[in-house]
Nucleic acid binder design. Structure first.
Length: 841
RNA sequence: GCGGGUGUGGCGGAAUGGUAGACGCCGGGGACUUAAAAUCCCCUGUCCUCUGGACGUGUGGGUUCGAGUCCCACCACCCGCACCA
């Protein structure tokens, strides 16, 4: 018997050191083993590892370690998405330099990751905030510019009129600046854009090849790209001008009761020049945030202009509005309003008392049935539409497009919802855009020999706004073209640019180029990419675009960077709170301040109860966070890793619980106790246990490959239970050794300690996955269900593959079944071999 | 508002259209111990007339010999919405 307990506080560090010294996780591109690139989305160095990171990286780690055991050469790197706003916020709040703050965070987070024993190749570590990284990004940006994929145009930003600075969407709270509290305005600035729309069709078509991506992510990207076929048509205006309108529902043209243009549409601007009411309305529209959610949840408002628009088929005059819900960026920035069949138009028509006409119904008989309280945007049969009456929606669309083209007032057009990618940020802590502005030569790229354009260190955050824009000695430079005086671009790149190619840099890190094409060809595409569902659209679409752009430039030979994608759920925790009696304000308490039993919770400090709130994503504001360091110190890395894999399916949320982690820590010890049961001298075979072991090897491999870690965990619980119960035998001794191999990817420290203790030489990290004797996987008996009218009455254990006749006979012979039938006439017997018999009376 | 997802015991969940609740947590009972910790064993969806039976997978309908699984409608919650990463 093995009385000692497994002690993570000494074992974890010892084995982590052993792996480091043996360079177990260094990826060798010269190896002739099949290559596997396992990648988790790299973290933003916020200061501390979050439990969500632990879950993400544990999943990747299990896969990386498993692949290595299956004989693959594994690339499993880690780096830092190190540019971004929180560093600037820290600079403003604490006076610490963003670079210092970021680099210190990286150091402490790296130490945290090491304590979890991840099989990472730290020799490839990178941080996007270092010139060794972002300098190459600047070179790539210039390459894209030269390929015609970069341009500048005016675009709206959130402007804080008090702080005189641009705000990110998250810094706008209920239409006001988060620091100043001032009402935010929309303001136009000249900004840099990447032509992602050039790739719209490719990015859409490419989704089809991504058969190892979740369908939901592909669907979200498809909807985001938003290819639509519709009609662009012109309405003649009463002042002699014209307005171009785009509609995806040209079939409903006979139901149009108004035309509306965006507040920043040229026609709106022209109207405003003469009409102070219109000008005031446009000003009003400029207030508030710029996000789509803001615009679409805001009350629909319009301004009725003096102009009218002539309906091209009816010849009637429709009122022309300026409306806050029309987007200048989509289609032509103008719409025809069909209230009956579009909810926004419906709401608008209600408000301004415009006609609401039904032009689509379930059948022709619907023509006179009025619309209810909502629009009917669906399919149907055209009514009240002259020549279209009786047509289905698709035929009517085509008829209207054909007629418009024939008569010259419109044409069929494909329109994309996807907009070009605005990459300008008016901020310091990002990759400087490597361009200068010269009065003589215009906008000129920095010479590649002069890269990187590095960020100046001597900056101040005493005043709001971009420190680069007021840094005279950094800003003033000479023009690479004419040598005259010039000013540097002071915008920096969106951090999504940094994360659009880091996976290439992990494959190789030459000093003179962004990456080594031969090395990239060896490792890429990433075999398995793992990250949060919140990145389903933006990051993943941008990375796909960037890769395609590089492919167009001939720099890489593939178009999709991530062959297989997995999106994991969040880690959640209960919340504990009290409501302040006076203000009604919620006061949250951290888990460590709480004593919790099965039904209630009290605050340790005063012994009085607190309310138990819902289980939500861990966040600082709800104080329901658990610090990985604390729990590693308390339970050991393996228990924490095991918890991350247990119970919840990896794509779903995982609720953290104290009792759950304690159960995991107990299980680690249970596995450890089997070391004492490993008896090399034990004799005799145990056929059932041998079968169970073989079945476990097979099932655990299958579930890990499918990333169903919770099921792998359940299989391992079963195997441990079976090994504990079995009497000593050679089969049991072999089974225990096999168990250690199976748990090695999940609890690697314990596995090493156990491996060593049973006398194995070398590291289990370098050991192979156990072989399985296929003949042991064949079952010879099955239990089948016997139902009467679909309800279970009995079960039978029969030889596998028994005939239908035999099964029917055995089923009818059952007392329980006969009692249930109770002499009724048997009308039908359904027999599914090896499954069930269902008797219908 | 729009797009995407999720919903099964007290809790996390399992279940190729075929035995609902595997496995784990919590809880209850017992063994061991001077005692405790640790460990081990048993029980644990609800209800009833309890050697059996009825009900039960967010709600309401439907298809089927058979539905957690497929179809329709609805409800609740979560994620994203282009300057958070």
């Amino acid at each position: 018997m093995n009385d000692t307990r497994f002690d993570p506080s000494s074992a974890d560090g010892r084995w982590q050191k052993a792996w480091d010294e043996a360079e177990c996780f260094r990826a060798d591109s010269a190896s002739d083993r099949p290559k596997s690139y396992v990648l988790e989305m790299f973290p933003y160095p916020s200061g501390r590892i979050h439990i969500g990171h632990v879950r993400n990286y544990t999943m990747g780690d299990v896969l990386a370690r498993y692949k290595a055991m299956r004989g693959h050469e594994v690339l499993h790197p880690m780096g830092w998405d190190a540019f971004g706003m929180p560093a600037e916020n820290a600079a403003m709040e604490k006076g610490v330099h963003p670079g210092k703050w970021t680099r210190e965070n990286i150091e402490s987070m790296k130490a945290q990751l090491k304590r979890l024993g991840f099989a990472l190749d730290w020799s490839r570590e990178l941080a996007t905030c270092e010139p060794e990284y972002y300098g190459h990004e600047q070179a790539l940006f210039i390459d894209l510019f030269e390929a015609g994929l970069v341009y500048r145009k005016e675009s709206e930003v959130n402007w804080d009129p008090v702080d005189q600075t641009v705000l990110a969407n998250e810094q706008v709270i209920e239409g006001r600046g988060w620091r100043s509290g001032a009402e935010v305005e929309k303001r136009k600035l000249a900004q840099w854009f990447l032509k992602i729309t050039d790739f719209a069709e490719e990015l859409l078509d490419g989704l089809e090849s991504l058969d190892k991506w979740p369908d939901k992510v592909r669907l979200m990207q498809e909807n985001w790209i938003g290819k639509s076929r519709g009609l662009q048509l012109a309405f003649d205006l009463s002042d002699g001008g014209r307005v171009a309108v785009y509609s995806t529902r040209p079939d409903t043209i006979y139901g149009a009761s108004f035309v509306a243009v965006a507040p920043d549409h040229p026609i709106a601007q022209a109207v405003a020049a003469k009409d102070p009411g219109a000008a005031a309305f446009i000003e009003e529209c400029k207030r508030g945030g710029t996000t789509a959610a803001d615009l679409e949840t805001a009350e629909k408002k319009g301004y009725l202009t003096a102009l009218t628009a002539r309906h091209p088929l009816l010849g009637s005059e429709l009122p022309l509005f300026i409306a806050n819900f029309v987007l200048m960026d989509y289609g032509t920035g103008a719409v025809m309003g069909v209230p009956g069949h579009d909810q926004r138009d419906f709401d608008f028509a209600r408000k301004y008392d415009l006609p609401i006409l039904r032009v689509v119904g379930v059948s022709a008989a619907d023509a006179d049935r009025p619309l209810g309280t909502t629009a009917e945007p669906g399919e149907g049969v055209l009514v009240n539409s002259g020549p279209l009456d009786g047509m289905d929606v698709d035929s009517a669309k085509q008829w209207v497009i054909d007629r418009a083209e024939r008569e010259g007032w419109g044409e069929g057009k494909t329109v994309w919802r996807l907009r070009d990618w605005g990459v300008s940020r008016q901020r310091y802590w990002g990759t400087p855009i490597p361009f200068v502005h010269c009065d003589a030569c215009g906008v000129v790229p920095v010479r590649k020999a002069d890269l990187p354009v590095t960020l100046p260190e001597d900056i101040d955050f005493a005043t709001p706004g971009n420190p680069l824009a007021r840094h005279e000695s950094w800003k003033n430079t000479t023009c690479p073209k004419c040598g005259g005086a010039a000013v540097r671009e002071t915008d920096t790149l969106d951090t999504f640019v940094d994360s659009s190619w880091y996976f290439l840099r992990f494959a190789s890190q030459p000093a003179d180029r962004p990456f080594e094409p031969e090395e990239v060809a060896k490792w890429l595409p990433v075999e398995q990419y793992i990250g949060g569902i919140e990145h389903a659209i933006l990051h993943l679409l941008y990375a796909r675009f960037w890769t395609r752009a590089l492919a167009r430039l001939g720099m890489v030979e593939f178009t999709e960077p991530f062959a297989s994608l997995f999106t994991q759920g969040m880690v959640t925790h209960e919340t504990y709170f009290r409501r302040e009696p006076d203000s009604g304000r919620m006061v949250y308490f951290a888990p460590e301040e709480i004593a919790r039993d099965a039904k209630s919770a009290v605050l340790k400090e005063d012994g009085f109860p607190v309310s138990i709130g819902r289980v939500v994503k861990m966040s600082k504001s709800k104080r329901n966070v658990v610090d990985p360091d604390t729990i590693i110190a308390q339970y050991g890395a393996d228990a924490v890793r095991w918890f991350m894999l247990s119970d919840s399916p990896p794509e779903r949320d995982l609720p953290w619980s104290e009792s759950g982690i304690e159960g995991c820590a107990r299980f680690v010890q249970r596995v450890w106790r089997l070391v004492g049961e490993h008896d090399p001298a034990a004799q005799g075979e145990d056929a059932d246990l041998a079968r169970k072991t073989a079945r476990s090897v097979h099932d655990v491999a299958e579930t890990i490959e499918a990333l169903h870690f919770n099921k792998a965990v359940a299989k391992l619980y079963e195997l441990v239970g079976a090994l504990e119960k079995a009497a000593p035998s050679a089969s049991r001794t072999r089974g225990i050794q096999t168990l250690f191999q199976l748990v090695a990817p999940m609890m690697p420290h314990l596995a090493e300690e156990a491996w060593h203790s049973i006398g194995q030489l070398g590291l289990i990290a370098n050991a192979p996955w156990p072989e399985v004797d296929e003949s042991l996987l064949v079952e010879d008996e099955v239990t089948i269900a016997v139902q009467h009218r679909g309800k279970l009455r009995d079960t039978l254990t029969v030889p596998k593959g028994a005939s239908k006749e035999t099964l029917e006979e055995l089923a009818l012979a059952s007392d329980k079944v006969q009692r249930s039938i109770d002499g009724a006439e048997i009308r039908k017997v359904i027999v599914v071999p090896d499954r069930l018999v269902n008797i219908v009376t």
